[in-house]
Computed example of a mutant assay.
Amino acid sequence: MTNDSMEESSDEARVESVSAITLATNDMPRAVRFYEALGFRIVHGGANEAFTSFALGSSFLNLTSETHDPIRFWGRVIIHVSDVDAFYRKAVAHGLEPQFAPRDAPWNERYFHLTDPDGHELSFARPL
C-alpha cells in the first residue's frame, strides 16, 4: 500500500505520534538525578520508585527498574530542544559528559549525543 492510498482511506488506523519511550535502569536514584540535571520534570514516581515518568514536551520519558537482559546498544532517542548549544552547556555545567560538542549535520540538524548512566544514547537536536 502506498502513502497516497493510506491517506485516502479514512477508516484506516494510523500512527499520530510517540506517546512515551521507556528505558530500563539498574539504579533508579542515579537515573533520576541524571534526567533531573537535564531539566526533565517528574510527573510520576521518583528516585525511590520502581517506575518514574518525566514530561517530555507533550510526550513522556519513562524509567523502569524492571530489567530482563543486560542492556546493550539498541539505538538512540532523539529529543528536539529549543537551543542545542544552551542545552549542551547546561549538561556540561551539571558534570555530564556529552560525546562531542554540538555540530551541524548534513541532514540539516544541529545536535550532540549524551549517554545516560544505563548506556542509553540520547541525541539532543534542533532542525537548522
Rank of each mutant, 00 (worst) to 15 (best):
Glu12Cys: 08
Pro102Gly: 07
Gly57Trp: 04
Arg76Pro: 03
Asp116Pro: 06
Asp83Lys: 01
His113Gln: 12
Asn62Gln: 04
Arg30Trp: 02
Gly46Trp: 06
Glu36Val: 07
Asp104Thr: 14
Thr2Ile: 03
His120Ser: 15
Gly46Leu: 10
Ser19His: 07
Leu61Met: 15
Thr2Glu: 11
Asp116Met: 07
Asp83Gly: 02
Ile71Lys: 00
Thr52Ala: 11
Ser19Pro: 00
Glu66Ser: 00
Thr52Gln: 07
Gly75Val: 09
Leu61Asp: 14
Gln99Glu: 15
Phe73Met: 11
Ile21Asp: 02
Thr115Arg: 00
Pro29Ala: 12
Ser59His: 10
Glu12Pro: 00
Thr2Asp: 12
Ala91Tyr: 08
Tyr88Asp: 09
Asp4Thr: 05
Gly57Glu: 06
Phe124Arg: 03
His44Met: 12
Asp85Lys: 03
Ile42Phe: 05
Arg76Leu: 12
Ser53Val: 14
His113Arg: 11
Ala13Pro: 02
Ser19Thr: 07
Asn26Leu: 13
Arg33Ile: 13
Arg110Cys: 08
Trp74Ile: 04
Phe34Ile: 02
Leu23Glu: 14
Pro106Met: 08
Thr2Gln: 06
Asn108Asp: 14
Leu128Met: 11
Met1Tyr: 01
Arg30Leu: 12
Val18Phe: 10
Ser58Asn: 10
Asp118Ile: 09
Phe60Ala: 13
Glu7Ser: 09
Ser58Leu: 08
Arg41Asn: 13
Ile21Asn: 01
Thr64Ala: 09
Ala13Ile: 15
Asn3Ser: 10
Asp11Val: 14
Met1Arg: 01
Arg103Met: 11
Val84Glu: 03
Glu49Pro: 01
Trp107Tyr: 00
Thr64Glu: 10
Ser19Ala: 10
Asp4His: 01
Thr2Leu: 04
Ser5Gln: 04
Met28Phe: 10
Pro106Thr: 12
